[in-house]
Design a protein around this nucleic acid. Sequence first.
DNA 1: CGAGCCGTTGAGGGGATTCAAGCTCAGTGG
DNA 2: CCACTGAGCTTGAATCCCCTCAACGGCTCG
Lengths: 248, 248
Amino acid sequence: MTVVPLYRMDPRHPQARACATCGVRELALFGALDWEGLDRIHTHIDSRDLPIDHVLFHAGGVDDALYTLRAGIVRFERTTEAGDRRIVRLAGRGDLIGQEALLNRRFADDVVACTPLSVCRIPKSLILELGSAEGSLLQELMRRWQLALDDAQAWVSNLTTGPAMRRMLHLLLKLADLTEEAPLATHPTIWLPRREDMGAMLDMTVETASRIVSQLRRDGLLTLQPPRHASLDRAGVQAAIEARGLSA
Amino acid sequence: MTVVPLYRMDPRHPQARACATCGVRELALFGALDWEGLDRIHTHIDSRDLPIDHVLFHAGGVDDALYTLRAGIVRFERTTEAGDRRIVRLAGRGDLIGQEALLNRRFADDVVACTPLSVCRIPKSLILELGSAEGSLLQELMRRWQLALDDAQAWVSNLTTGPAMRRMLHLLLKLADLTEEAPLATHPTIWLPRREDMGAMLDMTVETASRIVSQLRRDGLLTLQPPRHASLDRAGVQAAIEARGLSA
DNA sequence: CGAGCCGTTGAGGGGATTCAAGCTCAGTGG
DNA sequence: CCACTGAGCTTGAATCCCCTCAACGGCTCG
């Protein structure tokens, strides 16, 4: 039953209200902090909205801040020696990105907005100072690193293995998990990447991606909702994956 | 100019000598510690040698210790819903594995010895206690998490992208980097996986892996040195990768 | 309204898989 | 000593999946 300090409501500190009422606080890094902790940080944090295709980090560069994703999806992409693009990871609501900043390391990938974003920018100095005091923050930080690692390995296992149809089905399930509203719905509305981006995620051509999407549309598993969205029959996709496991 | 305490030489504390003279100390997690730090820990650490195919961690299980690899190579493997194996990562000399233990998380993969291993087993309690005191250890821990993440994403980009020949060439380069002796040699002797394991790493069949290895052997880029080893023309492989980038 | 981007669909070819047979080599027991 | 065995590796032939090349339609935007 902590009393809310007045300055939390102070309009000159808009971030104060934002942090206290943040919809993803339980999901986000600073969910590990209590109210007092929050009071100490919110003036340093800066929330912003970013448009599609905004580049948050550039490959090869260093940066002195990280971001917590409040809403939207970002992709991590790099270029192979042959010159074509490969997307190696997606991140969404609640994810922490740019942890390399804490280690003064260069980024391996461009990090680009797939959908409009709402993010919190966190200076690395803030975390480093806080980290020495708040053990729970470091714990949370490590947990997030492990989540990213799990995600990367699941990507290898799900999105790069087997025939094109299998990879696409797994991608659709992943996109369903990244959906903001009604994440448990049986027919969630997902962000549907451009065919070229699907190709970069699944290592297939635009044409193959298009053919498979059309196929799924005909089968009723996917209903396009332009622009760039679709509703997905989650159970049907699951069933299709398992059926393929047997028929193969 | 620290004086070496007598007990470091005490034969009843064999681990004391092992830590003080450890060949991978600079590489390993506790490289972040000074001599005093080492003195406090070495009795808790337990170095052991493990045979090929030894399973260090079981998927789905939890464990209360991590390992630093002093020598050898391990693979992270899981099983797809269709029932076949997929290797999603390799780790070698100096790498820290099993960090999930610190977070009380289940392992996503089996972790299995590819070659004979020499490892240090570190109880998670030791790190958790030490972590609160030694800030540099936490820093080092985070750095290692990031290394694993980089590795996983490079795996996607290099070992799952493009035609079978390209993926194989990149795998050979990675195996060269994991070589213990003479890591800078132009013709390093590498550990050469069984064709079936190559298939699980690169998502191709045993036959395709075999055909490509034979091809490279005929081209003189690879000289088999049974059992399970080969010498690699590193420059030739590099050139082949770049040539393919252009010709494609 | 033409230009350009994106998505779709078709035809043909190539690379990988599948199915099948032979090979090498280490271990085993007669 | 050597046939026997089985696991791993190699190679061939047929098939199929996916890529390449190409054409076309819908849509946005200058």
